[in-house]
């Protein structure tokens, strides 16, 4: 089964980007993306939509071994023109599962002068709920928001919680589950509530 592209590349990518922009500027809010489903179970429509919206020949993408495969590689390069990289430190985007973050992978965190030169994590999750064990505060959040991500997300969230210590350097994350999406920029303070 072929990997689908956006029906209307100009207007669909604009619409998806606006959802992404809202997600990133209001961390923890959930958004449902209308994107044709790619084949297989690894990559949901939301994650595929993000890739189609943000990647092109100027971006380098790192694929976690758990998700990597010839079908994804071929589809990604064919539809976006992006360059795949084996070096996480030079990746603009890294396609990961939350468990991958248990390893100390050396993604780009940016520098104090150029904190924007960092890797953005695109995460495929099994659970993404508007209530749960993670409490979020910070820019884009009036009081507090919650996210439920399931136990598997613990390594990911430990890594993102460390952002506060390295700010303004750090990792931004776009969390996806099926057609749903939320974002956790490095500015968000993350707390686990038992």
């Amino acid at each position: 089964m072929p990997w689908p592209t956006l029906n209307d590349p100009v207007h669909d990518s604009q619409r998806l980007f606006r959802q992404l922009l809202t997600a990133m500027s209001e961390p923890g809010t959930l958004h449902t993306l209308e994107v044709p489903s790619p084949p297989g179970d690894d990559i949901g429509p939301a994650l595929w939509g993000v890739l189609l919206t943000l990647c092109d020949l100027d971006t380098r993408v790192w694929l976690a071994p758990a998700l990597d495969g010839p079908a994804l590689q071929e589809a990604l390069v064919f539809h976006t023109g992006c360059r795949l990289t084996a070096d996480p430190a030079e990746a603009d985007f890294a396609l990961v599962t939350p468990g991958v973050l248990a390893e100390p992978i050396a993604f780009a965190l940016g520098s104090d002068e150029y904190p924007d030169r960092s890797t953005t994590l695109l995460v495929a999750l099994d659970t993404l709920e508007p209530a749960g064990e993670w409490y979020l505060t910070g820019p884009g959040i009036a009081l507090q928001r919650q996210l439920g991500l399931g136990v598997a997300a613990a390594p990911l969230m430990a890594r993102l919680a460390a952002n506060r210590g390295s700010f303004p350097c750090g990792l931004d994350a776009i969390l996806t589950c099926g057609a749903r999406l939320a974002a956790l920029p490095r500015s968000t303070r993350i707390e686990e509530v038992a």
């Binding site: 943000l54 904190p115 924007d116 953005t120 931004d172 920029p185």
Partner: peptide, 24 residues
């Protein structure tokens, strides 16, 4: 063009993630 928009869009996501930082 769409490529320019994507470049600006990626920069905008960084900008909201690092409030107040000037993204080139």
């Amino acid at each position: 063009d769409e490529q320019t928009k994507r470049m600006i869009r990626r920069a905008l996501l960084k900008a909201v993630a690092i409030p107040g930082y000037q993204v080139p």
